[in-house]
Design a protein around this nucleic acid. Structure first.
Lengths: 125, 125
DNA sequence: CTGCATCCAGCGCGATACTG
DNA sequence: CAGTATCGCGCTGGATGCAG
């Protein structure tokens, strides 16, 4: 086996971890929602509808743990919590938006491919 | 509610679909493995270790359905099946590799952030 | 308003065994 | 070699209720 083969996996390990963040159901949506400035919990919830409260909490905590989002509590009454992209979070937007553009540009092709595939499958059954 | 809010979701819907492909556990690994040319089923399996046979089959079928990978059967004995990136599949490599570079460049920062977060969490318990 | 705890259904995915 | 079929566990994620 050529050495290159195993390096593929090794070099991809950290990448895979991050891709699962990016690929999870809500992370990207939240990162994009926060692109123009800080937002409060329920603002994000409305912007990212139909996210459930539970998943918003969990996703925000994950993003905060990864250092992509900062959380600021203002202990007023009622309490106020603002979320904002960190510098790291903003730097992630560039490659993510590139992927978004790709998706936008090609989703018609993908739809077509899927339709053709499904029809071919039906025909052979 | 401002109209802008819903556009966010609507414009992201096709994007989200594609992000789930990209974010799933094996798709990207396979796309990268195929970057230099066609490979046979078991070649990919070895390159993408420790993928299970089941997941390789399913992932390849998904990629084929999306038009990212083509499947060519040579009915010899034993049978031979080659998988290869389509033009669409190759075009996906660019944004994916950009994301990969971002992940590679920043995974140390993310590790640090996670460590700090986890320590802060421990301290407060 | 913000967020955690609990319960619960669905299915992603791995292990294993079998076919052409 | 290249799949398909089946089973089962664990995690994801939704609904609801409670707390600060």
């Amino acid at each position: 086996m050529k050495p290159g083969n195993n390096e593929l996996i090794d070099r991809c390990r950290p990448v895979r971890t991050i891709l699962s963040r990016v690929g999870d159901k809500w992370s990207v949506l939240i990162v994009i929602a926060l692109r123009e400035g800080p937002m409060r919990f329920n603002e994000i919830k409305r912007a990212a509808e139909p996210i459930s409260q539970r998943m918003l909490t969990l996703t925000l905590k994950g993003l905060e743990r990864d250092g992509l989002v900062s959380r600021t509590v203002t202990p007023s009454k009622p309490p106020r919590v603002d979320y904002e992209l960190t510098a790291l979070g903003h730097s992630l937007r560039e490659p993510v938006e590139a992927l978004g553009r790709w998706a936008f540009d090609h989703h018609a092709e993908i739809d077509d491919a899927q339709t053709r595939f499904d029809e071919a499958e039906l025909a052979s059954e």
